[in-house]
């Protein structure tokens, strides 16, 4: 295998290229958000904060940001709570139709968003709830809960099964064992799930676009700006969106790996 080090060199180079492809659009929007050219191209023109000043002064952006923050915060809390309850049920109980139960919980992310969007739009206008912020929250919770469930379930896997029974045997009620054993044990996973579900909600645009009515979230605003023409302020908004979602996802991962290193000691 003399050629193998040469081959691994090529493979490594290829992998780096693939990462470059994946991160290129993120890097480009950040760079062009500081570029003064009206149409972003190479070579770069001068450095400017003009696009940030434009969006700072735009009340639509503030409105959208407010909506997005409300939606992702509420989604994050609801999805994490539902995800935790489901993960605990899966961890502790066996019952008939359990696989149907799990399918019911885990399927939503595999359904194309555009189909969910149409279904949600029709359903919400049927029950008279379309165009409200909380209709977006409800839809996003359906979408995000499986992620919260998966993260918490992985954490519960690492728990000693006897820990909970020990609490019962020492006289704790099921509720108290939940409060004082299970929830504290799952805390890093719950924080991680809260961040990740917030990120899912913050970036989701198809369902939000369909059911939002006049209450636009940030991605819906971007979608509408992009439909018009090329407007470099999208790069500025986009950079802010990237910052928020990357922060959320990285925070989620940090808490997720925190729990792993803790449990291995």
């Amino acid at each position: 295998m003399r050629s193998s080090s040469f081959l691994s060199g090529i493979l490594r180079g290829y992998t780096v290229l693939m990462f470059a492809f994946v991160f290129a659009p993120i890097a480009f929007s950040v760079i062009f958000s500081f570029n003064s050219a009206r149409f972003p191209t190479i070579p770069l023109e001068s450095f400017t904060l003009h696009w940030y000043q434009t969006i700072w002064a735009d009340p639509d952006v503030w409105e959208a940001l407010r909506n997005s923050v409300i939606v992702s915060l509420c989604t994050s809390v609801l999805a994490t709570a539902l995800g935790f309850a489901t993960a605990y049920t899966d961890y502790r109980y066996n019952f008939r139709f359990k696989s149907a139960y799990l399918a019911l919980v885990l399927l939503p992310p595999t359904i194309p968003l555009i189909i969910m969007a149409l279904a949600m739009l029709a359903w919400f206008s049927k029950i008279g709830a379309s165009g409200e912020l909380w209709s977006i929250i409800i839809a996003h919770t359906v979408l995000a809960a499986p992620f919260a469930m998966a993260i918490t379930r992985l954490r519960l896997n690492q728990m000693d099964k006897d820990l909970e029974s020990a609490a019962w045997n020492l006289g704790a009620s099921e509720w108290r064992a939940m409060r004082e054993v299970i929830i504290p044990f799952c805390k890093p996973a719950l924080i991680s799930a809260a961040f990740l579900t917030a990120a899912v909600s913050f970036d989701e645009f198809a369902i939000a676009w369909f059911v939002s009515g006049l209450n636009k979230t940030v991605p819906v605003l971007i979608l509408e700006i992009v439909q018009g023409n090329i407007d470099p302020q999208v790069n500025a908004i986009g950079t802010l969106v990237f910052m928020v979602s990357i922060t959320l996802v990285v925070a989620a991962q940090v808490f997720f790996s925190l729990r792993q290193s803790k449990s291995s000691t």
């Binding site: 149409f39 990740l196 090329i230 790069n235 986009g238």
Partner: peptide, 28 residues
């Protein structure tokens, strides 16, 4: 893997707009 999970949860729409600008006739 840590790095690859980030873009999966990061605004797809904005990334596509970035490609739009990169791939355009007068783009990068």
């Amino acid at each position: 893997l840590f790095l690859l999970i980030i873009p999966f949860f990061t605004s797809y729409l904005v990334r596509i707009f970035a490609w739009y600008v990169i791939l355009a006739e007068s783009g990068a």
